[in-house]
Amino acid sequence: MRKRVELTLASILILLCIGLRLAHTDNIRRQDRAAHLIALDGLASMGELERPVVQFPHGMHAVGDDDASCRTCHDVAPDGEGLLFVFKAQEGLSREEIKALYHDQCIGCHADRESANKPTGPQMCSGCHEKEPLKSVKPMHPVDFNTPLHTLHTEKAALACQTCHDLPDSSAPFDQDRSHDLCLGCHLTGQSNDSASAPLDCGGCHTSKSPLLVLDGDASQGGQVAFDHELHEMADVSCEVCHHKEPETACRECHTDGKTDTDVKISIQAAMHTKKSERSCVGCHEEMGIGDVDDCTSCHQPFGEDAS
């Protein structure tokens, strides 16, 4: 009798283990689905790390799909201007206090979200302190702050030079912390006005290629146009307005420079500039009241400048 009870108990335990293993993956967002990871290795400067460095998937936390906001993790800067771009205020804390801060806040939040049946993160050690290098870890791309992007800041956002460029007597290096403070602080305040062009996610700035599509027509006819395709996708413009033949067909496949004899009689210049059609850039901008359509440089780079 006793043996039978023990056997039954052992079987139940084994089944419980298997069931828990199967059920465990519910609602847990895996780190390896994240593209943009930040290594939380700040404690490394305070002595040898006990556990593998946490590769923090910032993009998965800053999705803004519920009540979690930037302020959940980032405190307001001591001067009251913007946010601190480290996790909470760590100034003056000991190694053990910083460790406890991360554990309390991260695990606490993950546990609360599990209770609330919201998508959540790991609560077990190895869920965050992953030993194996993550497949999705990509070296952070430098910000390709090219001319069109510069123009976006000076013209569209109308920033004064000194907003980014220090006065000559400043000797502070423009390192990662400072650029994050400056750029993200500004983007943060600009978010409510224009979220599409003031990115807060890593990939918004750290991208391997320019987000702008270079429309390089005949150089003798005018400078290149750095076309922000994404901006137009976000605007209330459907694909068919521009790609009116087929979604994959680019403008220049039909509209040529006007010198080549084709079936399509509308040149690329006319297709882009005519005010008679809403399909053209100028026609659409005029219809929607966007920008000064008579100012060529609102789209074209000045001659001789390369937009790529």
């Binding site: 283990c17 828990l20 293993r21 465990h24 593998p52 790991p122 077990m124 050690c125 190895s126 869920g127 992953e130 030993k131 194996e132």
Partner: peptide, 14 residues
């Protein structure tokens, strides 16, 4: 679980 030999989360649960 500590050495994450074959699925740290599984061994932590176990």
């Amino acid at each position: 679980a500590y050495h994450q030999i074959g699925g740290g989360n599984f061994w932590t649960l176990a």
